[in-house]
Amino acid sequence: MPEPRPLFKDESFLRHFWHPVATLDEFESANASGNGPMPVELLEQKVVLARLGGKIVAMKDQCVHRCAKLSGGKVKGDQLQCPYHGWMFNAEGKCTHMPACPTQKISSRAKVDNYDCEIKYGLVWVRLDSSYGVTEIPYFSVADNPNMRIVVQEPYWWEASAPRRWENFTDFSHFAFVHPGTLFDPNNAEPPIVPMDRVNGQFRFIYDTPAGMDVPDEAPIGSFTYHCSMPFAINLAVQKYVGNTLHVLFNVSCPVSSKRTKNFLIFARDASIGDPDYPHIAFNNLVFAEDQPVIESQWPEEIMEDEISVVTDKVSMQYRKWMKELELASEQGKDAFKKALYNSVIESDRTYPDMMVAAE
């Protein structure tokens, strides 16, 4: 038999997207100063985060002098100091001082690569390649809703690829087998085939889960509305059958490498209920603990071309198709990539007021 081939030949197209690398709490706890530095990894690129001049910045975690990790250094004022020879770098990555030869002219080559970095939803986001400049930080539907209580959970690490994690979170067919009695009733093993719309760089679809299942009240079971910002963010808004309240799960994976993810979950619920956070955190962790060994058992970690699909795999099949289009378009340049990301493909009869905003 021929060797299985990965679906994606070149994952460099993912460098054009924004990815979360840490929670803000993580960053501020990484150093007693609250300003870093903090090492992170994204797409096998070692990155250092530091707050310089009041703003968190992201740079390549490597000094241009003798390649020491800058994350082992110190933040001094609005500069990051290398731990090896004390070279100082500003927020743009430019070397401003060489202590061993302070009067020598600093070469223009003495500059560390820096990356786009933003704080949003309590997460630190990084974009490694801004040359196309057409991507946005993914959509979290209730980020600015004062009526919702928003909780940023601690990140969780899986030995699995980010596409595998995305498919797991949007896979209707696994609920009955991986989460029986926790999230689903094992007697409801046959999910519907839902229409899927591509709008504004997102997949949008709705799944009304079966009513009357014997699951805990903490289980977010109801009408599921998905807004999935490419490539790895999922905003799942659940109008719960219990109490008819809104519960939102925002799950996004950081592709540390092709085989490892750092995953982030933000969840939100009606603030007027006034219930404690802990039961919800514990329930989310329980669901993830049921998923993790199964997803980590998938091998190879990368999605393969020859995997067998059936009709109920529609969501993952459409996801793979779009991801492949983005990979190929990225090789053709900015315009092709933007078109592949923002052109609408509509299957349902729903309308969206923001359908072409990004494309325009």
Rank of each mutant, 00 (worst) to 15 (best):
R5V: 13
W299G: 11
P4V: 13
Q318M: 15
L246S: 08
D306A: 14
A358F: 02
A91F: 00
G133C: 10
Y241Q: 04
W157Y: 08
T135S: 03
R198F: 07
L236G: 12
P99S: 00
Y121W: 06
V75C: 02
N200S: 11
T225E: 12
F267G: 03
T96R: 05
N114T: 14
G34V: 11
K314T: 09
G73Y: 04
R260I: 04
A359W: 09
P300S: 11
V112K: 04
D291I: 04
P191Q: 06
C228Y: 00
N147Y: 05
H247R: 00
F283E: 07
P83L: 06
V40T: 00
Q62H: 03
P195T: 01
N200F: 00
V252P: 08
W166V: 15
P163V: 11
S258K: 15
Y352R: 06
T245V: 08
I206N: 05
T182G: 14
T182A: 15
G36M: 10
E26N: 05
S108R: 13
P192E: 04
G86V: 05
I150F: 00
V310F: 13
C228T: 09
P186F: 02
S297L: 08
E190F: 10
F205I: 01
T182Y: 15
S229F: 03
A340D: 03
V134H: 03
Q45A: 14
P231Q: 05
Q318A: 15
Y241M: 06
S330K: 02
W87R: 14
S141A: 07
G212R: 02
E307T: 03
L7D: 00
H16C: 09
F205C: 01
K321N: 12
D214Q: 10
Q202A: 01
K55D: 13
R5K: 06
D171R: 09
G122D: 00
S348A: 05
D217F: 11
E325N: 10
Q62A: 13
G77M: 05
A358L: 10
D335R: 09
N31H: 14
V315F: 07
F224T: 04
L326Q: 08
A32G: 06
K60S: 14
L128E: 13
A282R: 06
E26V: 05
E154Q: 14
D197M: 04
E92D: 10
S130Q: 15
